[in-house]
């Protein structure tokens, strides 16, 4: 019994310690002034790796989610004879919630896990260590470009996801189920507000991008440099990112759309 309490306490301390390490780690990464000449090509390369290569899964998922929203929305709304509101429903759901959240979950699974595994492997094969011995700080050279790339790529992916989703919804609603196109767009435009809906969704995706990238690079940098350690770090990246995204989504939604 006493052992269990003790191990519970140790677990708590471990969690707090790893939070502390990740904070110090973040400070170390961000404290470096980016050097435009050497830093820029590295950043571009990482945006390619985490952003462009995630584009396929984001576009395909966005399309299908938009189409499903169109179908489900039509079924429910036609009971009330207000199929025309389908555009409004699809756009609001995507722009406010599903765009940022689903993109962040996909991003954690596609790009976050890859980042963790890559950095973990660099640690295991002593590449980070050897860089340090060459007088190059791996936090600035390896970690910082990856963190910034995630931060930049994620909102772009979320925007693309929303647009593709709305297009998919229109495909089903207008082309297939025969909702009048004018009222589809008209309803949408009268209810979606640029600042309140689109920008708030954008802010969400910026926050999610930062958190996912942070978790991914930290788990890679902090992992136990063995094959078991890397695989557990990769799992942790996906689990922690997903939980963080869903939790933060609730907080942000409450702040942005709640009535306080």
């Amino acid at each position: 019994m006493l052992d269990r309490i003790a191990s519970l306490g140790r677990l708590g301390l471990d969690i707090v310690a790893s939070l502390g390490r990740s904070g110090r780690f973040l400070a170390g990464v961000l404290s470096g002034v980016p050097r435009p000449v050497t830093g820029f090509p590295l950043l571009v390369k990482q945006i390619y790796a985490v952003g462009v290569l995630s584009l396929a899964i984001v576009v395909v998922s966005g399309l299908f989610i938009g189409m499903v929203l169109g179908l489900q929305g039509y079924t429910i709304l036609s009971d009330y004879g207000s199929e025309a509101a389908i555009g409004q429903m699809i756009a609001l759901t995507l722009v406010r919630e599903l765009g940022p959240v689903v993109t962040a979950l996909l991003f954690a699974g596609r790009a976050g896990s890859a980042l963790t595994a890559e950095i973990g492997l660099m640690k295991a094969t002593e590449q980070l260590s050897s860089m340090e011995m060459m007088g190059v700080d791996p936090l600035r050279r390896v970690i910082a470009p990856r963190l910034w790339a995630g931060f930049i790529a994620m909102p772009i992916l979320a925007l693309i996801f929303s647009v593709v989703g709305i297009w998919g919804g229109m495909l089903v609603g207008v082309e297939w189920l025969g909702v009048f196109e004018g009222s589809f767009w008209g309803n949408m435009q009268s209810s979606v507000d640029f600042v309140d809906d689109v920008m708030n969704g954008f802010i969400k995706s910026v926050v999610f991008g930062f958190v996912c990238a942070w978790i991914a690079v930290f788990q890679g940098y902090d992992c136990v440099p063995t094959s078991a350690g890397i695989s557990s770090a990769t799992t942790k990246t996906v689990v922690y990112s997903s939980l963080a995204v869903l939790g933060l989504d609730f907080v942000l939604t409450a702040v942005m759309f709640g009535d306080f």
């Binding site: 590449q127 060459m134 190059v136």
Partner: peptide
Amino acid sequence: LYALREKMGMLFQSGALFT
């Protein structure tokens, strides 16, 4: 420390080449 390390070379067991 980083300046001093420029005067050191280290050969790691695994080579540690950037893959």
